[in-house]
Amino acid sequence: MRTACRLLAASLLLAAPCAAQEARFFTLDNDSWFDTDRYYTNGVQLAWRDAADTRGELARRWTGSACRWLGCGDARYLFGQHSVGQLMYTPGDITVAAPQPLDRPYAGLLYLERNWLFLDADGQVLTTLGAQVGLTGRLSLAEPAQKLIHRIVDRPQPQGWDDQVGTTLAVMLSAERRMAWPALSGPIAGNVRLHTAAYWRAALGNTMTYAAGGLTLTVGKNLPPVSPAPPGIANRLTGGATGDTSCLWEWLQCTLVLGAEGRGMAYNLFLQGRPWREDPGVRPRRWVGDLMAGLRLDFPGTRGREHGPWFVQFRTTRRTAEFRAPTFVPRHTVGSLTLGIDF
């Protein structure tokens, strides 16, 4: 574990941004908005994006090789993103101190992530490559974080963290290709448009290994061809807001997003535990689906000389059961709130 800690610390130093932070945002995931406290129960992430290409030699070689294979070799480098975050998973009843072998195990992840975004010359395809490294188990700090939050908001204290997925260095590489679908896109009324996009995503690592595909419908004004735009880059993809972008008032812009995703799961550390170790775990479902709905609000009047406009985004995800058990395993709903400044 000393070696793992040193590797994570070195990664944190190497990933520190070298360019000015041009877009910053904070995301909070939680299921308490839907009156539950189970499964994927909490996630926090602080992220910042910069337009300067600060890739080192290793990152350039990896992203270049990946893009040649994925078809984005001629794409324009768009942005780099640095993220630091924590994920938290619990069983359905956190007041039970004894092991619960038929329910989802306690698990946490404290991670650092780096993403690189590339846009094809025609603006119709957005490619995202990612690398994530983190620590699970007690070093994820999920147990003290949840206990502190529950103490502050006066909720029941979790009792079963002694039986959590153990500590390991968790690594994952990922790639996503999001493609505009012009045939199913066009004006709805006035300047309001519908943009449809299809995407696929794949991840490989001892954190998760899976393949996913999905479809999104975005409704709004002055939308980029590939919508919805990831947080923090919408203004750059549209070349800056022009014309009528208002929603209800001149000082407000709004965008509605609906989506569906299916995933084939080959491995999930947070469900199955570490291989060949005596970790708690359950039998995962190999096919999982999500339905998503989100609303983004932009406030163009908040743009400053040194930063872009503020935005807030809320997304709801309804997920099918992720594991099998003799008892009923319900679907789960998580809310995601993002607050930040755009470019």
Rank of each mutant, 00 (worst) to 15 (best):
Y267S: 02
L297S: 04
L271V: 01
C247K: 08
R277V: 11
R263Y: 04
P275T: 05
A293D: 06
V288R: 05
D279V: 07
R303C: 10
T238D: 13
Y267M: 10
A234K: 12
W310I: 08
W310N: 09
L252K: 09
G243S: 02
R274W: 11
C247Q: 11
W276N: 14
G308W: 00
D298H: 07
W249Y: 14
L271N: 06
A234L: 11
E278L: 14
V226R: 05
E250W: 10
V257Y: 00
G281R: 03
G264C: 07
F299N: 06
D290T: 08
P230D: 02
C247L: 13
T238E: 05
G304N: 02
P228D: 04
G239R: 09
L271M: 02
E261Q: 14
L252N: 12
W251D: 14
M292Y: 07
L297F: 05
T255S: 02
R274T: 06
L297E: 02
L237P: 12
P284W: 01
V288I: 11
T238M: 09
S227L: 05
I233P: 04
R318C: 14
S246Q: 13
W251I: 15
S227E: 03
H307G: 05
M265R: 09
T316N: 08
V312A: 00
V312W: 01
L291H: 03
R319T: 15
A241K: 03
F270T: 12
F311M: 02
E306H: 14
F270Y: 13
W287C: 06
G243N: 02
C254Y: 09
P230Y: 13
F270Q: 08
F299D: 05
H307T: 06
D290P: 08
A266P: 00
Y267E: 04
P228S: 04
A234N: 10
R303L: 05
D279Y: 01
T245M: 01
V257W: 03
I233V: 15
T242V: 13
F299K: 00
N268Y: 12
G294P: 04
V282S: 11
Q313P: 11
T302L: 00
G289H: 15
G294W: 03
F270H: 12
G301E: 13
A229M: 02
G301P: 08
L248T: 12
R319C: 01
